[in-house]
Nucleic acid binder design. Sequence first.
DNA 1: ATGGTGGGCAGCCCA
Length: 255
Amino acid sequence: MRVVTWNVNSLRVRFEHLARWLADHPADVIALQELKLPDPEFPREPIAALGLESVHFGQRTYNGVALLARQPLADVQRGIPGWDDPERRVLAATAGDLRIVDVYVPNGQVVGSEKFAYKLEWLGRLRDYLAGEIARHPRLVVLGDFNIAPADCDVHDPARWEGSVHVSPAERQALGAITALGFADVFRRFPQPLDAWSWWDYRMNSFRRNHGLRIDLILATTALAERCTACRIDRLPRGWERPSDHAPVIADFAD
DNA sequence: ATGGTGGGCAGCCCA
């Protein structure tokens, strides 16, 4: 099973990039974030024309997540059960024998802000939800835009970023509480380049200078992570004309 | 040098 996560920053704008990339990178499951379109405008038919089933949980202007898959998606769950979060950021489904949870973690804006408090609350609620999911689904993958760089090796300039949003101790602790449920960040199970980022700011020529963060993650339950045979970031589409600010992350799992 | 760029919807909000 090949699993992909990609924050497309507007599916309307990036649909052609997605189609072009998928033509060269056949995947079994694709988790998308930041659709930025309401459900009635979701391009279900164009995606079906690519040979992919899809489920989506969108809203106008902001947020929105979708799962695309070669095979049918079952037991679809929109949002975190029992919490009426006004922002649409979580979508779960079962593809084959994998349970998939697609997440778009809040950005947090500035450490100490209201949005930052929402991010921490949100991560706590995700942890509680995943504690139940992991008990029911031993083969569980949680992937998406976490808006947290797990460690300093995931940051191009740790000194300049120290204490900022995406790297602050509070955020890393909240992520740690999730991985402590029994997940592995599969990217770090393999040798990787020292400068492997998944997001580059649109400003300040960040991509050209390769100033980025690794904030797009694929977490797998520990037993499943041992079946992971590869994980990499494909930075190529970040260099295409009018790109998303995120690159796709790819993981392969043996059957 | 506290900026810069991009998406979405209509002068900002969010990333």
